[in-house]
Amino acid sequence: MRKRIAALALALAMVLSLAACGGDNSSKQPGGDKKDDGQGSDKVYRIAMVTDSSITDGSWGTVTYNAMVDAATERGWQYECADAIAQSAYYDTFASYCDQGFDIVYAPGNQYTDAILEVAKEYPDVVFAQLNGSMGTPEKAENGNVMVMFPDSHEIGWTAGILAGLMTQTNTVAFIGAIELDTTQGKYAGFKESAEYVGKQEGKSVTVLDPVYSGDFNASDKGIEFAKALMDQGADVFFGDAGAVDSGARQAIDEHNTAAGKVEVYDIAQPADLLGQNECIICSQVTDNSSLVSMCMESVENGTFEGGAVYGTMGNGVLSAGKISDLVPKEIQDKYNAYLEQVKAGTFMK
C-alpha cells in the first residue's frame, strides 16, 4: 500500500512539476495599452495563436509567431500562444482560448479550417483569423466571424521561381513541401511556372522537379535526405514550404557546397528575410504577415470586423523579396528586380 501511494505521489510530482514548467501562462502584455471601446470602458484586447509547428523552428512557426507579436506590440494587445499542438487537440485548444475570453484566435495554416469552422459556430463573439486559409472558408462560417488572411501563394512561388530560373546552372530546380496543402500546391505551381518562364526568356529549358513531401513540418532529418536526393537529380536551386524541413535541406546544401569548395547549390528561403542564416540562402520571399494580423486587429478594435478574406500581394506590399546575396551576380539582381516590378504591376508573364 505504501508503495502504491509513493508511486502515485511520484506521478503527481512529475505532473505538477510540468505545470510549474508551463508556469508563465499569463498573457504577455507588450505595451499594456488599453483601448476605449466606445462604451467608456478601457478594454484590453487579447489575441491567441494556435499552431502545430514549433515557434522555435526558425521557419514558419517562428515567423508567424513573430508576426503576431509584432502586430500585438504595435497595437498594444496582449498575446498568448500554444504551439506544437497535435491535430487531435486543435478543437480543444481553440475552444479553450475562446472560453478565456480572447478577442481573436489566430491560426497560421490551412490545416485548421475544420476545427475553426466548428469552434466559430459555438463562439460567435470570438474572431478567428486564419493565415493561409482557403478562400471559401469565411462563407462557410455561419456567424461570419472568420477572416482568412491570404498571402497570394502563387505570387510567393513566382518570387522564388523567377530567381531560381535566373540562377540555375544545371537547369534543374526543386521544391520541398511538408504537407500537400492548397497553399503549398499554390506556391509550387507559381514556382514552377515562373522558373520555366524565366528560364525560357534566358534561353534555357528549366526543369522543375516534382514536389516532394516530408509529411511533417518538424522532420529536419527528412529535409537533409530530400535535399541530398534532389541534388543527386541535379537540382541546384531549392525552394520550400516545410518549416524545419527547410532548415534540414539547407544544412545538406551547405554541406554539399563545403565539400565542393564553392557555393554551387542555392536555397531561396521564406516567409521572412533569412539571408545569412545559412550560406546557401541567396534571397528570401518575405510575407509581411504582421500587417495582415494587424488589419484584423484594427477591424476588431473599430468594431468594423465583417469576416471575409484579406489578400496579400506584391501589389499591396504584403509580399516582397528580401535582401539579395552577393552570390547573385549584379546583372542577375537587376533582371530579378525588373521581373519583380512586372509582378507588382500585374504584367508578369503577360
Binding site: A11, M14, V15, S17, L18, C21, G22, S54, I55, T56, D57, G58, S59, T62, Y65, N66, V69, C81, A84, S247, Q251, Q277
Partner: peptide
C-alpha cells in the same frame, strides 16, 4: 508513458527558456 509526456515537455520548456520564443534559428 509518463516519461514520454514529461521528458518531451521538459525538453521543449528548457529550449524555450534558454533561447526564448520566436528567436532566430540556433545551429
Amino acid at each position: 508513458m509518463i516519461i514520454n509526456i514529461f521528458a518531451l515537455a521538459l525538453a521543449s520548456f528548457i529550449y524555450r527558456v534558454y533561447f526564448g520564443a520566436g528567436a532566430s534559428l540556433a545551429q
